[in-house]
Nucleic acid binder design. Structure first.
Lengths: 258, 258
DNA sequence: CGTTCCCTTGAGTAGTTTCAATACTTGTGG
DNA sequence: CCACAAGTATTGAAACTACTCAAGGGAACG
């Protein structure tokens, strides 16, 4: 929970959540302003639409200002979710280095996004190695989350997996100042939860019931009600350190000293 | 299969395999030389040893010159493999931006590694944004592989998962000029294969038997014998495009034009 | 030549999938 | 405002996949 959230959002209305709760403290005000100024224009998308298609050549990247997004891989007729994004995430900054994404990016409910051209990004980053390193960091955060998902899929059963998803989203929302004690809206269907937990819709329904009975956490119609987050955390033995917030992996230095 | 492999390895004996088969073609000779010169010293490690511990503050990174490595997450008494690395991989370049890794890196059999200090890396990258972008690219390759593993775990059964691991390793070895028609040494036990396929050793043994009966591919005592790679690829519907080699995600431009 | 680690097999159990049927929610048009 | 359709969620039963526990066989190393 950042203490000066109001300040950040007032001063940087579009990118004030970027790296918030993680390395935002290592960004100078000049760097924050540079990032804010990167955004060339804003768009609002209604819901469940494509943001970036796999294989398309990208000349710009997207930052998620409000709302959620999902990373999807489709192949041979099956479709799976391999990642979720929350407000403040620079969701396809990877495309700056990769040029083409290996997966699709879709919105999850209505979103507000900002677009950043790679030409501009390139100019800024060439002149600002420290900022470049911070942006690099932010893309590696996604990789760390991927690793945790691998672990989750290798080790947990269906009910624990979905508990893990809820824990992660709670934590990430808290980082960017959108935490909530009692619950929040998360515009996902059970079918989509199943797609990201490697199970079927039918089984996901049963897993959610089990989770509800064990922890009191209710997920229905895109709303998560969670009176006792600690129970959820206990249920899947959740450890948020991989998100590089406060904790044993935290790197709080104002600068990369090497 | 790079055509001028001999040349690369002769001229750049320690880093000649870096990005080979992928974006190495986009590196200038000056950039290749800079990378080669980054290596401050070389080490040989006997086998199954720790390279980097989770949470340790890193002031240098490691490139894998020969041999294999694995990414491991240990938690609450269980242990899982979340990634494999092959020769040419800059295995903990992430630490340059992350400072601390969220997982452990272990060797897999005997290896030869090169060490690169972050101070030096920082100087070079500040002056060379194009090279910085290429190194960034290489870390994102790992993220793409993670996503494919997530997909693999979400969608495939045990036998298909291990087939997928074999396909991926074959393909990555081929990129760096270590491909082989009939098979190769891969110093893994069935227990470790199980750790990366989210199953048990007992079940892995059965899965390997099923795979053997279906495709003729034999894995025993750290050796893969694979007379018919196409059968393996068919068995798990393997699609290597996520590795960003030749294919529909390839970006072959000499430069990042934006 | 025995110890150790690795691999294999069997049998019972737990977790997951599949197919099929039923209910609830939401949005739309009459 | 109600009826309807489409999408979403729940339940049951049977089949299947994977896990666990347990025991035995094989290779490698001193």
């Amino acid at each position: 929970m950042p203490k000066d959230l109001g300040h950040e959002l007032q001063r940087y209305p579009r990118t004030g959540r970027f790296l918030l709760g993680r390395l935002r403290g290592a960004m100078g005000e000049d760097e924050k302003q540079l990032v804010e100024d990167l955004i060339e224009h804003e768009e609002e998308l209604a819901g469940d639409g494509l943001i970036v298609r796999r294989g398309a050549e990208c000349s710009r990247s997207t930052i998620l200002i409000e709302g959620f997004a999902r990373r999807v891989i489709e192949r041979n007729g099956y479709r799976h979710i391999v990642g979720l994004q929350v407000p403040g995430d620079f969701i396809d900054l990877q495309a700056f280095a990769l040029k083409r994404l290996d997966h699709d990016l879709y919105t999850l409910g209505p979103v507000r996004i900002g677009r950043v051209s790679h030409a501009r990004l390139n100019k800024v980053l060439a002149a600002r190695p420290h900022l470049a390193r911070l942006l690099w960091f932010s893309t590696l955060l996604d990789a760390a989350i991927h690793r945790e998902w691998i672990l989750k899929l290798e080790h947990l059963n269906a009910a624990e997996r979905v508990a893990h998803v809820f824990c992660e989203i709670c934590q990430r929302l808290e980082f960017v100042g959108l935490g909530s004690k009692s619950g929040f809206s998360l515009p996902l269907t059970q079918a989509q939860l199943a797609e990201m937990c490697g199970t079927t819709t039918v089984h996901m329904s049963r897993a959610l019931r089990r989770l509800r009975e064990a922890t009191g956490v209710t997920f229905r119609h895109g709303k998560l009600e969670c009176d006792d987050p600690a129970a959820l955390i206990r249920y899947c033995e959740y450890d948020p350190s991989y998100l590089y917030g406060p904790g044993d992996l935290q790197f709080s230095g104002r600068d990369y000293a090497d």
